[in-house]
Design a protein around this nucleic acid. Structure first.
Lengths: 200, 200
DNA sequence: ACAAGGAACGAACGGTCGTACTATTCTGCG
DNA sequence: CGCAGAATAGTACGACCGTTCGTTCCTTGT
């Protein structure tokens, strides 16, 4: 089972790329088949249905995002350096137009009001991401880098907002200051979480 | 020209509503016709083309957003109160699922990589919004509510990020803490901009 | 009251969608 | 080799897409 797996991989890789442009629901079997140089029916044999294809593409995007952002960040030292690494890799993922991260942003907006398996999976993925951020931040608390009373969930939400703003400014508006603004917001987030503040 | 304008208004209102659910590209002439109780061809006579319909719906969403968020905010006293009013109305717009604001978030994600008239209009609208926020913030500087060296464009970016994060958490994840997190982020933004800080 | 013109409709078009079936080609093991 | 089974192509389908056209209906100004 090597040939089949290879083309399946190629299909999904190209699928993530395409879906990052036109969205998960805009991803079409015919277009994806043309993009991978195969016939509609040949591709359909792999993706047993449209919804299944969307879920597979989503799973592929998740793995690409984990490989590009999460996994490398976890090799950084615990605490603030790890939080910084997470942010850096995430920004890089957006700036170099690696499709994984972008696809998640787009799909989340697309399916926030459309019930179904795709939305359910998206909720799971975003919840996982949220918890991962919160967990990485929490180790920063135990390391003494952040205040004891800082709220990891709140930090995760705030960081996510910063990233959404960055993707938005960078991709839609092409704002050259997008990254600088995001980095400044990130620093403000860290400053607010640090124990050196006058609070307490 | 009263009858025609009335149905046109009904079409656009329903169009904003529908597009906020399925996106601007997911908005279909047939579905919108069914939703407004008219025939496809009857509706098509108003919207001279699909792209024109999308632009008209976008314009309607813009007006609804201005009426619900921008205009009421401008009645608040200059400076920080006006910034707060802007934020409050914006959050309310998202929480009560008023479709105007949501549509913009969705459309921005949808078209950030799809060149064309729709994308161009979205860029204009978001640039305008960004400038409005920056301007409102700037009056806060001249009023002495914010630091002289605070960057209005940076504040606008940050506030936009907070709102994106809120919409995301609220609509996709249904996080009950979404609004609280957004409000906290907003307060942090204001704190960082206030002149009482030790900086300078 | 009546004509003019705008508003809405129904039917039809070429095209693409997702999805079945069948047929063909290819691959890898004995 | 040869052959089973996987992998891909071909074809057809019903549904819906955006769009056009000719026809009705209704509004409105006179």
């Amino acid at each position: 089972m090597s040939k089949g797996d290879a083309t399946r991989q190629a299909i999904l890789h190209r699928g993530v790329e395409t879906a990052a442009r036109v969205g998960l629901s805009g991803l079409t079997i015919g277009e994806l088949a043309a993009a991978t140089g195969m016939s509609k029916s040949g591709l359909f044999a792999h993706a047993k249905s449209k919804e299944s294809l969307q879920l597979q593409v989503l799973a592929q995007a998740r793995e690409e995002f984990i490989d590009a952002v999460i996994r490398p960040a976890l090799t950084a030292p615990r605490g603030e350096p790890r939080v910084r690494a997470l942010f850096d890799h995430w920004v890089t993922c957006g700036r170099t137009r690696m499709p994984g991260g972008c696809l998640f942003v787009k799909a989340a907006a697309e399916y926030d009001d459309r019930p179904g398996a795709v939305r359910d999976q998206l909720v799971r993925d975003h919840t996982d991401l949220h918890e991962t951020i919160a967990h990485v931040f929490r180790t920063g608390i135990t390391e003494g880098h952040f205040r004891d009373d800082a709220d990891p969930a709140e930090f995760a939400s705030a960081l996510h907002g910063v990233m959404l703003g960055f993707y938005h400014s960078y991709r839609l508006l092409g704002d050259p200051a997008a990254e600088a603004h995001a980095r400044q917001s990130f620093e403000n987030l860290l400053d607010a979480a640090r124990p050196t503040s006058d609070t307490v």
